[in-house]
């Protein structure tokens, strides 16, 4: 019977190894294989080390995600002095230009010391990917600054419309051009390339609107001012 713990000990001693020199652990984002990340303007990160309080941070992008493999933080988030022997829980959420959560991901690392490079799988939060419309707002606003916009409304020919309150959307709305967001699918007839839509921006003083035609860009529709 004494062979049992001895053998187990030997087995584990020979199979386990540690790398005392490696002090940096990288977490790469694995993008979803559908269009659920298209339009995402930035990410919220929550990192919990051991039993400590979660560290929250926001990583905004300079422009939204418009290609499937671009679903990533443009600027990596770096946490210094992390206990290498504690478990780490990383929760990531991605929001589009209307501050609607579109993707999420979670990664649990039992011990950073042996982690090396890890992959965090990002998945869409909706049961099926939503239709995304992108627009260069400067073509609608002309000389007015983005900060003067209080709301933006996109109206389709069917009478369906989608509106976003710029103040509520905050930094997610203020992302660089083209602004992009998932629109609720209009009843019966989703928007399609060639459709006319009206884009109306309500400003702190007055309003500005433009008629646009939708162009198919593969994973999203781009509204181009006529």
């Amino acid at each position: 019977m004494r062979a049992l713990p001895t053998a187990l000990l030997l087995l584990l001693l020979t199979s386990c190894s540690s790398d005392p020199e490696s002090t940096e652990v990288r977490v790469k984002l694995s993008p979803p294989d559908d269009t659920s990340c298209i339009g995402v303007s930035g990410f919220e990160l929550e990192v919990t080390v051991g039993n400590g309080q979660p560290t929250k941070s926001t990583s905004m992008r300079s422009r939204p995600v418009l290609a499937r493999d671009d679903c990533d933080l443009q600027t990596p988030v770096s946490l210094q002095d992390v206990d290498l022997d504690a478990p780490v829980l990383i929760v990531l959420r991605g929001f589009d230009g209307a501050r609607r959560q579109r993707v999420q991901g979670m990664l649990q690392i039992a011990r950073l010391r042996d982690a090396g490079t890890q992959s965090l799988t990002v998945k869409g939060v909706d049961s099926s990917p939503l239709q995304v419309v992108a627009i260069d707002r400067s073509t609608v606003l002309k000389s007015e600054p983005i900060s003067s916009v209080t709301s933006l409304e996109l109206s389709g020919q069917s009478g369906a419309s989608f509106a976003v309150d710029a103040k509520s959307a905050g930094a997610w709305f203020a992302v660089g051009e083209p602004w992009a967001a998932a629109i609720s699918p209009p009843f019966a007839t989703p928007l399609a390339a060639g459709d006319d839509i009206t884009v109306r921006a309500t400003l702190t003083k007055g309003a500005s609107s433009a008629h646009c035609v939708l162009q198919n860009k593969g994973d999203y529709l781009l509204a181009v001012v006529q």
């Binding site: 020199e21 490696s22 002090t23 940096e24 984002l29 990596p76 988030v77 770096s78 946490l79």
Partner: peptide, 17 residues
């Protein structure tokens, strides 16, 4: 496997990019 001299207690976690 303990190595009193070289194993650091803390490290850097880099997410994304």
């Amino acid at each position: 496997t303990r190595d009193d001299g070289s194993a650091p207690g803390t490290g850097t976690l880099v997410i994304g990019g």
